[in-house]
Simulated assay, not measured.
Amino acid sequence: MVVAPATGLALPSLEQAYEACRQETAEWAKTFYLGTLLMPPAKRRAIWAIYVWCRRTDELMDSPEAQARPVAELAERLDAWELRTRGLFRGEVADGLDRVMVDTLERYPQPLQPYLDMIEGMRMDLTTTRYASFEQLYLYCYRVAGTVGLMTQEVMGVDPAYTSAPWSEAPDTSEAAVALGIANQLTNILRDVGEDRGRGRIYLPQEDLERFGYSEAELLAGTVNDAWRELMRFQVARARDWFASSEAGVRWLAPDARWPVWASLRLYRGILDVIEELNYDVFNHRAYVPTAGKLLDLPRSFVIAQAR
């Protein structure tokens, strides 16, 4: 029996804890989960562990229970979570989910900073409900999503063909990894505009609303008009540009990571296609790629992964 030093409580086995991560990923991130199933077992388990850490971080702010709490209490929770996260990098374990993160960090060493940056992104949600410019929104997107690319790039690995020669230097995949996270978060923002307004948050840059002549009052009312559609066309194009920027880095990845990353990239980008098919009415409809569409795209992603 393994006991957590911090609490003195018995911990589940690693297998049990990883299975809990698998189940949580499958329930809450269906498209992402499908991509992880294309990975070797060791890598997919590590990705599940990182996803669950990210989800636990997000839940500190966005769970229904958390939204009923005062800002000061949420800030204290984030402070405590930062201390606990720093402890993970020292091998400190309080529960089974901590245990899989420590195991993942031992197998795939990585820096602490992206994890601290994500927590800073959660802190932004404590006080920031509007973004004047895309530059301001970019910082938020980097912190809450671009960091995920940095967290997972050591798990993905680099193709040995680029590093096997004595004179070779491993390519830096960080920029592309961050770009994919930014693209995913921009897609989330467009998909979830209706939900976010219910929490009093508007992530679309204020400068863009002004540029297209669409008011905040109209957004809060869920008005779909020509100005809204033009605004959304612009936002969708911006998100696609970030997806395109991320593609360049996929070819550097280890062969067993290229297919799952291409699959996840293409499936998530498919949400933008659905938003267009809905004529940009994300207030009354949720944009998602049906399961059949996901399965049909997997062979295409495989072919692309082999060719690039």
Score class of each variant (00 low, 15 high):
residue 181 G to A: 11
residue 191 R to I: 13
residue 180 L to G: 13
residue 186 L to N: 10
residue 205 P to K: 08
residue 192 D to W: 04
residue 203 Y to K: 03
residue 211 R to G: 03
residue 196 D to G: 03
residue 185 Q to P: 00
residue 201 R to E: 00
residue 212 F to E: 00
residue 180 L to T: 11
residue 188 N to G: 08
residue 201 R to A: 01
residue 186 L to G: 07
residue 191 R to L: 06
residue 204 L to I: 09
residue 195 E to G: 11
residue 193 V to G: 11
residue 187 T to H: 08
residue 205 P to E: 04
residue 199 R to H: 09
residue 186 L to V: 10
residue 202 I to L: 05
residue 188 N to T: 10
residue 192 D to N: 07
residue 183 A to P: 03
residue 196 D to K: 00
residue 190 L to D: 05
residue 204 L to Q: 02
residue 208 D to G: 03
residue 183 A to I: 13
residue 203 Y to Q: 01
residue 194 G to H: 08
residue 202 I to R: 06
residue 206 Q to G: 12
residue 195 E to F: 13
residue 181 G to K: 10
residue 204 L to C: 05
residue 204 L to F: 04
residue 206 Q to A: 15
residue 197 R to Q: 15
residue 211 R to M: 03
residue 180 L to I: 12
residue 196 D to A: 04
residue 190 L to M: 14
residue 191 R to C: 08
residue 189 I to T: 12
residue 184 N to A: 08
residue 184 N to L: 12
residue 189 I to G: 09
residue 209 L to Q: 09
residue 210 E to G: 01
residue 190 L to V: 07
residue 196 D to H: 03
residue 202 I to F: 02
residue 193 V to I: 15
residue 194 G to L: 02
residue 204 L to D: 00
residue 211 R to W: 06
residue 181 G to R: 12
residue 207 E to N: 15
residue 187 T to P: 03
residue 180 L to V: 13
residue 182 I to C: 10
residue 197 R to P: 08
residue 192 D to P: 07
residue 195 E to C: 11
residue 195 E to L: 11
residue 212 F to M: 08
residue 186 L to R: 10
residue 196 D to M: 06
residue 206 Q to N: 12
residue 189 I to F: 13
residue 195 E to V: 11
residue 206 Q to P: 05
residue 192 D to I: 11
residue 210 E to L: 02
residue 210 E to V: 02
residue 212 F to V: 03
residue 190 L to S: 09
residue 194 G to E: 04
residue 207 E to V: 14
residue 202 I to Y: 02
residue 197 R to W: 14
residue 180 L to F: 15
residue 197 R to Y: 10
residue 186 L to E: 12
residue 182 I to T: 09
residue 194 G to T: 02
residue 180 L to Y: 13
residue 198 G to E: 13
residue 190 L to W: 15
residue 196 D to N: 02
residue 191 R to Y: 09
residue 182 I to D: 04
residue 182 I to F: 05
residue 186 L to C: 10
residue 206 Q to D: 14
residue 205 P to R: 08
residue 202 I to T: 03
residue 208 D to M: 04
residue 189 I to L: 11
residue 183 A to V: 09
residue 208 D to K: 01
residue 197 R to K: 07
residue 180 L to E: 13
residue 203 Y to T: 03
residue 186 L to A: 09
residue 181 G to W: 10
residue 201 R to S: 00
residue 206 Q to Y: 13
residue 193 V to A: 15
residue 209 L to I: 04
residue 190 L to T: 07
residue 203 Y to H: 05
residue 193 V to C: 12
residue 186 L to D: 14
residue 194 G to I: 01
residue 200 G to F: 01
residue 196 D to T: 03
residue 208 D to C: 01
residue 202 I to M: 02
residue 196 D to L: 06
residue 205 P to Y: 14
residue 197 R to G: 05
residue 183 A to Y: 06
residue 201 R to P: 01
residue 195 E to W: 12
residue 189 I to N: 09
residue 187 T to K: 07
residue 185 Q to W: 00
residue 182 I to P: 04
residue 203 Y to I: 00
residue 185 Q to V: 00
residue 206 Q to H: 11
residue 211 R to H: 07
residue 200 G to L: 00
residue 188 N to R: 11
residue 211 R to V: 01
residue 188 N to K: 07
residue 208 D to E: 12
residue 192 D to G: 08
residue 186 L to H: 13
residue 208 D to W: 05
residue 201 R to L: 00
residue 183 A to E: 15
residue 212 F to N: 04
residue 197 R to M: 15
residue 189 I to D: 01
